[in-house]
Computed example of a mutant assay.
Amino acid sequence: MQDLLQIEIWQGKTVADVLTLDFLISAAGSVFAAAGILVLGWIISAWLQGRIRALGRKHKNLDDMLFDFLSAVVRYVVLGFAFLFVLNTFGVQTTSVVAVIGAAGLAIGLALQGTLSNIAAGVMLILFRPIKLGDFVDVGGKMGTVNSITLNFTELADLSNAQVIIPNAEVWGNVITNYSANPTRRAEWTFGVGYGVNLAAAEKIIRETIMADPRSKSDPEPFVQVNNLGDSSVDFLVRVWVEAGEYFVYQADMKRKVKEALDAGGIDIPFPTTTIVQATA
């Protein structure tokens, strides 16, 4: 019996030590201390997460999505340190735990390379914000409005309101065209008139028709000039600035209005013509 009591069972403690009142009190104290650390870590992490989120929503020029991500990172970091303190409370060597976690993380990383690349790209998208919620973008030939950006994928609503899911690695690794990044855009058209037309009169009709629309901006100065002498027409290149949100509808409206104005002014808009020369024997 005496030999059994001397067997070491935990952290240098023998059965006899475990049965002593002092050890039981010490173990109970460690349990209560660990519980207190966990509760305190949970409270502090939740408070920090809430404060960081509130900071992002307090200022309109700050991105809510970025602060949501940062708040989540801060919370998990605090909880991770709390867990390490708990292990220290029970006498566990945290250096070995960290080494085990590192080895496990390496194995998991090798098994989930594709997923982790999407997560890494998601972090870059959230931090550097080349696109934001509500932006109208073109990503690798996929065009639509950004509905959400998660750590794994970006969701777009295309022109027909269909849902388009793009892995973040493809978003970050592709050319991104953001049509909403700048407040204004420059609309551009080419209008062809006949060679027998009075070019000054045609230019006046085109300019007055476009600038009569309240969406057209006079600053910067609109550009209306003959740009090309085509096979069957003299081509005017027209460039006018407009609000980015009105670009597509505005560009379509002006094509129709200019066509109708040129018809009303008697300005010929020629069809493409082809002259066939037949050789005789």
Rank of each mutant, 00 (worst) to 15 (best):
A264W: 08
Q163P: 02
N198W: 01
E246S: 11
E221H: 06
V31W: 05
L5F: 11
L87M: 07
F69W: 03
F83V: 13
A27W: 14
G105K: 05
D63R: 08
V234E: 12
L110C: 05
I149Q: 09
G91D: 02
F248W: 11
E260C: 11
L40S: 13
I25N: 09
V100S: 08
V15E: 01
L133I: 15
N228Q: 10
L79V: 05
F223K: 12
A99E: 06
R215D: 10
G265Q: 07
V139W: 10
L125H: 14
I44N: 04
G140V: 09
K255Y: 06
S96I: 05
I52V: 15
A157S: 15
L4T: 06
G105Q: 06
T274W: 07
I52R: 09
L237W: 04
V18P: 03
T145M: 12
A201H: 01
G230Y: 15
F271R: 14
N227A: 15
G12D: 05
V193K: 02
N168L: 11
W241S: 14
M124R: 15
V31A: 13
Q11G: 06
G265T: 08
V31G: 05
N161R: 13
T89D: 00
I25Q: 11
V39C: 03
I166A: 12
R185E: 04
L262I: 11
V97P: 00
E208M: 10
N61Y: 09
A54H: 03
T274Q: 06
I25P: 03
D235Q: 14
Q49M: 10
A279F: 03
S45R: 04
L24I: 14
R185T: 09
I52W: 09
L127V: 11
N178Q: 05
A200M: 04
S233L: 12
F248L: 10
A82F: 02
T177W: 12
L159C: 07
P270N: 14
A82T: 02
A34P: 01
L133N: 14
R186A: 04
P272Q: 15
R51T: 10
G56F: 10
L106F: 14
V77D: 04
I206L: 05
Y76V: 13
Y76I: 13
S160I: 04
A120E: 05
L156N: 13
N88P: 00
L24P: 01
G36L: 05
Q113W: 14
A120V: 09
G192R: 09
V73S: 07
L55F: 14
L55A: 10
A244G: 05
S218M: 12
A202L: 02
N182Q: 03
M65R: 02
T89C: 03
T209M: 02
L87H: 00
T209I: 00
V193T: 07
R256W: 11
V86S: 02
K13I: 04
